[in-house]
Amino acid sequence: MSPLPTELETELARLVAAVPRPREAAVDVMYALQRHYGYLCDEAMHCAARVLGMTTLELESLATFYDYLYRRPVGRYVIHVCDSVVCWMFHQDSIFDYLCRTLGVPPGGTSEDGLFTVLPAACIGNCHNAPTMLINGRFYDRLTPERIDAVLAELRAGTEEPVRCK
């Protein structure tokens, strides 16, 4: 296990100290480690367990329960495509299908360049702009194939600094 960078260690210690009991920081610590490692690998889970004084199983209980903690490798941009009823009404499945085909991945898969992971998501709270998706904390509204192409191109070009999901 390689040691964590000092800044990250400091950040983790701050997260744990900021809450009444270390357990409360479990999700925050896992988010921080997820940002560092890209996803929650076993090593990250062991780090989190050490920092929080919890067992890896307890953290696994949480990490696998939640939606936005990834226990499998993901791309740099995780695309959460809302598939709830309002988006469905606006042909979300076609959008999703289009995304998967464009990137050449199955649902939950990561594109070959390691940039994109496509995931269906529960309602992301943007129903008035359906169909919609969420990429690293940013909403993309009223999707059309053209808009998706534009978004992907924009992200690929790296013009946008990734706003990682915290």
């Binding site: 606006f90 076609s94 299908d97 359906a130 059309t144």
Partner: peptide, 11 residues
């Protein structure tokens, strides 16, 4: 799943 669902018809 990426399977080609409804005819492409966007909102």
């Amino acid at each position: 799943k990426a399977c080609g669902t409804r005819p492409i018809q966007f909102g």
